[in-house]
Design a binder for these strands. Structure first.
Length: 413
RNA sequence: GCGGGUAUAGCUCAGUUGGUUAGAGCGCUUGGUUGUGGUCCAAGAGGUCGUGGGUUCGAGACCCACUACUCGCCCCA
């Protein structure tokens, strides 16, 4: 093994891996366009405050997972750990408040300094969608329907949609107080981690996998019982909307987003096919975000999906386009072969001309790159103004007049 | 950040209680075929055994550290 290693948690994407990525991005964007989304590409890094303020000082992402650097000018910048904050910042800096509702699709690398695992890299890639400026639950429904549509189109079907409501700010504050009171009374029963959560992000305790914690929270007050009238109606509208669209879901009261700016709807498409990294696509409503960042108070909802995780769940990839190979028999025909290749490329064929070697070598190469056909040019063919076309699957070979060549090759285009 | 497992050819892996020139399959190169690939046959190239240290007459094998990968925890896409 070479001593030249890539940075931990980063990978080279090539061959089928990158084809999977591109297929996911292209499929997702094509479908998102049907829903009125246009693409946005924000910078891969931002001033650190963009993430530090919006993600909340207590989230793990901010406290230990950000790639943060100081510039020569002494400013702190951070490689983006997620996409929503950058889109929200772009919304504000470009003064887009006048143009709502806005629908943005994005794709690109994200960076988190975590311990790498299967389905978790330090540089990974996401696709995401944000719908900004619509306060009503029909936006939540549409965004989730879009997500489901994309997953279906990709052939990712063994996923379950979980949803929950985090309520509006008023409901969440009220519930948090009740929950903290309850958990504080049972502090001794909680795991060390959950005692920390109790300080930092008490809702997260509900999500613990620790068996002792599960017992301790068994009788905890339910979030659903503490939603105010508005929040309740909102959640009901989302659920009935999804049902009307035929989108199946399960309500998971323990579903709590790690990022502080979420409110009302939170959702995740999960699978058990990916070990510990079961979340494939997740999102929620962030009505407080843009206002908190100093922009005009504007509701929003969106989601992001991990391309690497989707790629692992994709069914077999459609085969790549197969080229035709133009093969000169000897050096005397090389230029004629190059010119024929140019002619074919000009009208849309994918053409490989090998490089050097005798005819046998070039035939081997044509076979190795899965060419559909070989077009053989030798002294005889040049003299007769023809080409020999060999179907590399059947082995059938025919002499074709140059004038008929493109027509004859039509099935291989 | 915490705990477990793994690291031998380009790839997938063998390698006995520590013993002399470290193997296989696939892939690659060349030839059988100087106008024909995919099949077949033959030959060949390719390894400081992840890195560094230690034990030993002797280490691919045993010990320690580091690095990477991997599984789980935490958290997340």
């Amino acid at each position: 093994m070479s001593s030249l290693q890539p940075v931990r948690g980063t990978h080279d994407l090539m061959f089928d891996d990158i084809r999977r990525h591109r297929h996911i991005e292209a499929t997702a964007f094509e479908i998102a366009q049907r829903y009125g989304y246009s693409e946005i590409a924000t910078p891969a890094f931002e001033f650190t405050e963009v993430f530090a303020r919006t993600l909340g000082d207590t989230s793990d992402i901010v406290t230990k997972e950000m790639y943060t650097f100081e510039t020569k000018g002494g400013e702190s910048i951070t490689l983006r750990p997620e996409g929503t904050a950058g889109v929200a910042r772009a919304f504000i800096t470009n003064g887009l408040a006048q143009q709502t509702p806005l629908k943005f699709f994005y794709r690109g690398p994200m960076f988190r300094h975590e311990r790498p695992q299967r389905g978790r890299q330090r540089q990974f890639h996401q696709i995401g969608a944000e719908l900004i400026g619509v306060a009503g639950p029909q936006a939540d429904v549409e965004v989730i329907v879009l997500a489901k549509h994309i997953l279906n189109a990709l052939g990712v079907t063994n996923v379950t949609l979980q949803i929950n409501s985090l309520g509006d700010a008023e409901s969440r504050t009220a519930y948090r107080d009740v929950l903290v009171k309850f958990l504080s009374g049972r502090r001794d029963l909680l795991s060390v981690e959950s005692r920390e959560r109790l300080e930092r992000n008490p809702l997260r305790v509900l999500d613990s996998k620790d068996p002792a914690d599960r017992d301790a929270i068994a009788g905890a007050p339910k979030f659903g019982d503490h939603l105010n009238e508005t929040s309740h109606a909102f959640f009901d509208a989302v659920k009935s909307g999804l049902t009307a669209h035929g989108v199946q879901f399960v309500v998971n009261p323990a579903l709590v987003r790690g990022l502080d700016y979420y409110s009302h709807t939170a959702f995740e498409f999960v699978t058990d096919a990916l070990g510990a990294q079961g979340t494939v696509l997740a999102g929620g409503r962030y009505d407080g975000l843009i206002g908190d960042m100093g922009g005009p108070v504007t509701p929003g909802i969106g989601w992001a999906a991990g391309i690497e995780r989707l790629a692992m769940m994709l069914p077999a990839l459609a085969p790549a386009k197969r080229p035709v190979a133009v093969i000169p028999v000897g050096p005397a025909e090389e230029q004629a072969a190059d010119l024929l290749a140019a002619e074919l490329r000009a009208v849309g064929f994918a053409v490989d001309v090998g490089y050097g070697g005798n005819m046998g070598k070039r035939m081997k190469r044509a076979n190795k790159i899965a060419a559909v056909a070989a077009i053989i040019l030798g002294e005889d063919e040049i003299k007769a103004n023809t080409a020999a076309v060999r179907n590399l699957d059947s082995g059938e070979q025919t002499i074709v007049p140059r004038a008929d060549l493109i027509g004859h090759l039509a099935p291989y285009r």
